[in-house]
């Protein structure tokens, strides 16, 4: 029996332009050699003048304050301060990596490849998206650590009084609004999810309860921001006629991502002091911790 093969367009490698080519040896190999030497020499001198840190021996009873993950994970540790741990540490990064990997399947147009910012408006989109990502992330961090309310109050004597207290930061929406008791315990799942996590052995059917204000602060608001603000950015730039193609949308998304990723990493690294308080880098101190005390 004959099988039907559905022909789908598959991208093929471009034909080579042989007359435009140069020899790898020496043209490319030379550059690679120079780059490798520059890095070897730089890293060699860096290693001569700067030693890798080695603190006291590991001790489970002495917790340094603050305890920090390696710097490239501090963006996640920073997120962790603002929302539900599973969301900040696992769900958001995983979903983001999947989205990142899916970029080429979303934007399949060949236009503008092989040169920097090869499409119309690419530079503009990148600058705007990065600026918004940069300042937006800073503003959100400042707001959520209560600094904006503090500055308004301290510098401009602007105080909303107790009725506006709930706007101070995300957490205060949970604590400063008159939530009725029932809203803190809404039954939503009539079975035991513990069966799956391996800590319990199943046990009788129990009911899952939802603390609505807690859920709002730890999950709903962060999701609304993290999904909503980039969407809003792209939508706004689309309405303004800046974002037209899928490539443009990705440029806005990626630009915003790089900027806010950078801010999160920097904040987590240089601006989080004891108790993960927001401080200036020169105020950053690490206490070695006292044995037997968290």
């Amino acid at each position: 029996m004959a099988t039907t093969v559905v022909a789908r367009p598959v991208a093929r490698p471009q034909a080579r332009a042989r007359d435009e080519e140069v020899l790898v040896w020496p043209d490319l190999v030379f550059i690679e050699f120079i780059a490798a030497m520059l890095f070897t020499i730089t890293l060699f001198f860096l290693s001569v003048v700067m030693n890798a840190p080695l603190l006291d021996q590991a001790n489970a009873d002495v917790t340094p304050n603050p305890s920090k993950a390696p710097w490239y994970l501090l963006n996640l540790q920073e997120l962790l301060l603002h929302m539900n741990a599973a969301m900040a540490g696992i769900i958001i990064p995983t979903i983001w990596l999947v989205i990142l990997g899916a970029f080429p399947y979303f934007d399949r147009d060949n236009e503008g490849q092989g040169v920097y910012f090869g499409t119309e408006g690419a530079v503009k989109i990148t600058i705007i998206a990065s600026a918004i990502g940069f300042f937006g992330t800073w503003l959100l961090i400042l707001w959520d650590s209560g600094k904006i309310a503090f500055f308004l109050n301290d510098w401009f004597q602007l105080s909303g009084g107790d009725s506006l207290r709930f706007l101070e930061n995300a957490r205060s929406m949970q604590s400063q609004l008159p939530w009725p008791d029932w809203s803190r315990e809404i039954t939503y799942l009539p079975f035991n999810l513990r069966i799956l996590d391996g800590t319990g052995s199943g046990g009788p059917t129990t009911f899952q309860h939802l603390d609505f204000p807690g859920w709002l602060v730890e999950q709903a608001i962060p999701i609304a921001f993290i999904v909503g603000l980039p969407s809003l950015l792209i939508y706004g730039m689309w309405r303004m006629g800046l974002v037209v193609t899928r490539r443009d949308a990705l440029l806005a998304l990626f630009g915003g991502f790089v900027a806010s990723y950078g801010v999160l990493t920097l904040t987590g690294t240089a601006f989080r002091g004891q108790g993960q308080e927001l401080v200036f880098p020169w105020e950053l101190k690490v206490s070695e911790g006292i044995p037997g005390q968290e």
């Binding site: 080695l54 021996q57 590991a58 001790n59 993950a69 996640l76 599973a86 540490g89 696992i90 391996g198």
Partner: peptide, 30 residues
């Protein structure tokens, strides 16, 4: 690699990092 020196920096960074992994829904603790 960060854990290998077995100093305070290593130990607590990995503690923080693995706590992040442990917070995953359902499969986290495992």
């Amino acid at each position: 690699g960060y854990l290998l020196p077995w100093d305070q920096l290593a130990f607590w960074a990995i503690t923080v990092g693995s706590n992040i992994a442990g917070s995953a829904p359902v499969l986290g603790p495992k």
